[in-house]
Design a protein around this nucleic acid. Sequence first.
DNA 1: GCACGATCAACGTC
DNA 2: CGACGTTGATCGTG
Length: 688
Amino acid sequence: MEAGSGYNSVPPSTSFDKSRVLDVKPLRSLKPVFPSASETPPFVCGPPNGPFPSGFTPFYPFSVPKGSPMQMPMGPIPTPLRAFRSTQSPESSRAFDGDDGPSMEMDGSADGYFDGQKRGAPLRGSSSSQRKTPKNRDTKSSLSYAARKGSGTVFVGDISQVDRDDGNRELVNRVLMRFDALRRRLSQMEDAKELSNGIIKRADLKAGNLSMSKGIRTNMRRKIGAVSGVEIGDIFFFRIELCVVGLHAPSMSGIDYLIVRDALDQEPVAVSIVSSAEYGDVEDGDILIYSGQGGNFGKKDKQATDQKLERGNLALERSFRRGNEIRVVRGIKDAVNPSSKVYVYDGLYKIQESWTERKSGCNIFKYKFVRMPGQPVAFAAWKSIQKWKEGFSSRVGLILPDLTSGAENIPVSLVNDVDGEKGPAHFIYFPSLKYSKSFDLTQPSFGCNCRNACQPGDPDCSCIRKNEGDFPYTSNGVLVGRKPLIHECGPTCPCFPNCKNRVSQSGLKAHLEVFKTTDRGWGLRSWDPIRAGTFICEYAGEVIDKVKGKQGGEEVENDEYVFDTTRVYNSFKWNYEPGLLEEESSNDSEEEYKIPSPLVISAKNMGNVARFMNHSCSPNVFWQPVLYEHNNQSFLHIAFFAIRHIPPMTELTYDYGIARSNEAEGNSTLNRKKKCLCGSSNCHGYFG
DNA sequence: GCACGATCAACGTC
DNA sequence: CGACGTTGATCGTG
């Protein structure tokens, strides 16, 4: 290991005056540099000679030739990949995401397209899973599940049989959240080797098995075409996740099919495929050349044979003849975590050609898949992002390649492709907390004695003991569960800077961009996919002293860039359900989390990317107090983690909460609150 | 109904 | 980092 490799190092102390370096020049000052904006939609203000390399030294693009915006031969307009809503069921519309701002134009055509498909779908599948389905269902009663009454993100109560058969957006998200909470807990137990009866390898399969057997699943009714509640652009990190939401049933096989019975005949028809470029599948935009299954290709001690026209291969052949739609999931190597794979649902395709080729002297089947028109971009957007990163093309509307001026270990782009505004108001980029004077937390500060890296399950590590014996993160740095407080190792711990218990100190993990929204000012989103539980950033800024809060009260109230732990937040459930594992009953209730100590942070004058995150009543990010000591005192930090998997270019949002004074005074101060534009179905209408 | 086998997995380890 | 071995789940088939 490279000790002290910059990547995972502890953030600079406040005494090291990096802030001078980090002083982002007033972004407003960019305004005179550019020609005054016209109303015309996005034009490029990237550098004249293409994009910046990744290690690029930040400067302002003064040399942009006026009046000659570069027109990029770009493919898709970058829109949130989640923006698409399927219309299979009325519940599915925007149940979760309030992050589909600038892509409304997609919805209309897509809706029409799928409505047509729905009506036109001629085939009825049959499978064993349908046998248990009662024929007459009381849809009225069973469609209203407990969660709908409460706040949308709560996942209490079981999933009814009807909901298991056919999903919707909210259900799909709920199933995925419960699955992943379980998987993270199993990973944690495996890391600590604390499970007595056998080791849990493959926590994903174990969690998948539990989910499936306990009925935490949906879309069991298998069908041709779109799956209710799964939207184009949705991402997954395990094959088994495709199973629990009913997108693709086989846990390993790449071809899913069902048997369609006509009057006398029956034949297999393909419903979905999973492609992985490593298997020689040719992937290019809306075309996919897919290889058949079987033949023992790529297997070591097996002789390659001709592929046979049976099972999946036969199903694909029949689907080619029938011309039915097939769901396509693209497996992509994860750039952030190269050992794992990301699966992107890329919508519906049809097979246009089928032929055989010779490989190693044997026949293999090939199928040419063509994407149905009118669907929002998904995989194609990934390819665009890849080109931005590699420097082959420039992000449309790029204003700055790195607005942090190098303060973060990964650049943060500043982008506006909706209007002429050249940047947010002036602020100083500072990646952590700044205390005006020393703050006391009652906890004495002491570190652990671990030498290299703290080991999960080590009873001697005091940092782990402070976390009630559980290592808070899995081995790949994903947060296992919410807690009132998470204790990370600090500067005086002798363990290495890349100790796994320093997740929130190790800087940004994903390439983020600050972008102009259509109606909510500036927002934050990511070029990289983010898996649930991933640390995104902390809330940086100046810590406001509560004592002088009275005099500074007015100031804070008018400060739009303030984070305040004492606000009222919607409770939500994110952790695993202890009942699913045969453990001692846990009294860990996420409902009543107490804030360990009040913390108010203002990012008005200085702050990091977190100050750009907008509010949503159905957020995809939550905050979590984290403690680590510093200069022999314990300091509280606010770390943001992903609630669920977040596809690239989806806006990151969290719950701003409601100020207590507002709450107490009731309606009289409603006008002090801000009208909420999150657009989610359970939007409260206002916040602040 | 039950067991079995084929299958474009995900890890850890070497 | 890539090949290999281990563990492993699902659904259709027999």
